[in-house]
């Protein structure tokens, strides 16, 4: 195929300990480290491996958001993507609008595959890939832990609750990555330098003719209830006695 499009979301780094603002207006993001959403990074790694096998000519990364997203696109370029597209907007967008934007990009770029993470670790929505596939009217393979291409079709192993499910689908298609698809490569210093010279195109959201909507409003953000520490027992017998007292199992 000519190219694979990989979507990268700028998200709070997975090592950051999330704190809820005391006034309930959101989580603290000031001065917090931002990264590529880890599941998207896995999607990119897979696309790069496909290119290294000679099964695609080009890997294009795309991100939607403020200028800050360009940092994540540069990471993608440093990992090995050939070029980047930044759709610029100051608005926080919902998955449905992200999907509508990606369809527009797909119409121009004509990718054989669009790859992205199964979810972003901030909003945990797990929707964008599925919505994109619906609007693009193409197959979706979600939660993928193994992907094999063969000509105009692909086979994916999906991590489902019952075990591992295998599906076959026609290309082009949308693939969302699960944790075990691969282990992304580390970016080396020379690659970061090289990435600075790779093409990064910016498109204003308005140019795509899409007007985002606010369909869902966040009313309040709260810290989750915490479980309290219980009691310690000395041995197995005491443990079983305690369970019996609680009428368990």
């Amino acid at each position: 195929m000519d190219r694979i499009l990989v979507c990268l979301k700028r998200a709070v780094d997975y090592n950051v300990r999330i704190r809820v603002k005391t006034d309930g207006s959101g989580v603290v993001t000031d001065g917090v480290k931002m990264s590529v959403n880890p599941f998207d990074e896995i999607a990119l790694e897979e696309a790069l491996r496909i290119r290294e096998k000679g099964e695609t000519d080009e890997v294009v990364v795309v991100s939607i958001g403020t200028d800050a997203c360009q940092q994540q696109l540069r990471v993608g370029l440093a990992m090995g993507a050939d070029r980047a597209i930044h759709v610029r907007t100051e608005q926080a967008l919902e998955p449905l609008d992200i999907a509508r934007i990606l369809v527009r990009i797909a119409e121009t770029e004509q990718p054989g595959l669009i790859m992205l993470g199964k979810q972003a670790i901030d909003g945990d929505n797990n929707q964008t890939g599925q919505m994109l596939a619906a609007l693009w009217q193409r197959p979706q393979a979600t939660f993928v832990s193994k992907l094999t291409l063969s000509g105009t079709t692909a086979t994916a192993v999906r991590e489902v609750d019952a075990g591992l499910e295998t599906i076959e689908f026609d290309l082009p298609a949308v693939v969302t990555s699960d944790l075990r698809l691969n282990e992304p490569r580390y970016v080396k210093m020379p690659d970061i330098m090289k990435a600075k010279r790779k093409p990064l195109a910016t498109i204003e959201l308005e140019e795509l003719g899409i007007t985002p909507q606010t369909r869902v409003t966040v009313l309040q953000t709260a810290a989750p209830p915490v479980r309290q520490k219980g009691k310690m027992v000395a041995d197995a017998a005491e443990l079983v006695a305690e369970l019996k007292r609680m009428d368990l199992p």
């Binding site: 999330i18 809820v20 989580v27 449905l96 670790i121 369909r215 409003t217 966040v218 009313l219 953000t221």
Partner: peptide
């Protein structure tokens, strides 16, 4: 839109759901 992971129903159009792996709970409308 789609609402993911309803934890409780606040009204016919508002719900509580987890974000950041359950480290915060949002009520959304």
């Amino acid at each position: 839109a789609q609402i993911s992971d309803i934890m409780s129903v606040i009204s016919q159009h508002s719900f509580a759901r987890p974000i950041f792996a359950g480290n915060a709970i949002v009520s959304v409308e």
